[in-house]
């Protein structure tokens, strides 16, 4: 196969745009397109130009490939909703995807609950707080001595910080987990 700057340039750009896909898979795609272009080029230079026109810009061709790798694509775009959607779609055949999805959702729910109780404290200060004996955290309406929570108004920044921490943890679990699942499952 004789080298052609046009083909090399096209395939090089395609490979760069396919960078979210695992290297081995990317190499196979690039080789197939290179073989196609080389064979067309052996007919005529005009045929090569027509074929490159029909393939479209390498970046746009790469997007068509990436769209089939929904999770890989969502990871590359850093789209959290995209990752969650893709994970639940493949959870029936990937236990790892289900674990990542569930953990992310759980941390997200914790985050919402912490923020909610932080916001509720000013409205019902005697029933929202932290009690040690027995241990209670959040909104409590039974078996607590009203007003005896140990944090007082410090409860608000603490619960708020825990909420933010939960959200950050959810984001980290999602990004890290989704990347791992995408690499392993080629999805």
């Amino acid at each position: 196969m004789s080298p052609s700057p046009t083909i090399d340039g096209y395939v090089g750009r395609l490979e760069a745009a396919l960078s979210p896909i695992p290297a081995a898979e990317r190499g196979r795609i690039a080789l197939e397109i290179r073989g196609h272009l080389a064979e067309v080029a052996s007919q005529s230079e005009a045929a090569l130009e027509t074929s490159i026109g029909a393939l479209g810009e390498p970046e746009s061709l790469a997007r068509t490939y990436l769209a089939d790798y929904q999770l890989t694509d969502a990871v590359a775009r850093g789209s959290h909703p995209g990752m969650l959607m893709a994970l639940i779609r493949i959870s029936a055949r990937s236990a790892a995807a289900l674990v990542v999805w569930t953990l992310t959702l759980l941390l997200g729910v914790f985050g919402c609950a912490f923020i909610f109780v932080a916001a509720a404290k000013p409205f019902d200060p005697s029933h929202v707080g932290l009690w040690i004996h027995p241990f209670e955290f959040g909104m409590v309406y039974s078996d607590v001595a009203p007003g005896r929570d140990v944090l007082g108004w410090w409860f608000i920044p603490l619960a708020f910080a825990l909420g933010l921490l939960s959200f950050v943890a959810a984001g980290l679990v999602l990004r890290f987990g989704a990347r791992k699942v995408a690499r392993r499952a080629r999805v």
């Binding site: 795609i29 074929s51 029909a54 393939l55 061709l61 068509t64 490939y65």
Partner: peptide, 15 residues
């Protein structure tokens, strides 16, 4: 079928 849609389609059908 255009070249631009054929190769990604083949890739998906294979996967």
């Amino acid at each position: 079928v255009s070249e631009g849609s054929l190769y990604p389609l083949l890739n998906r059908l294979e996967r």
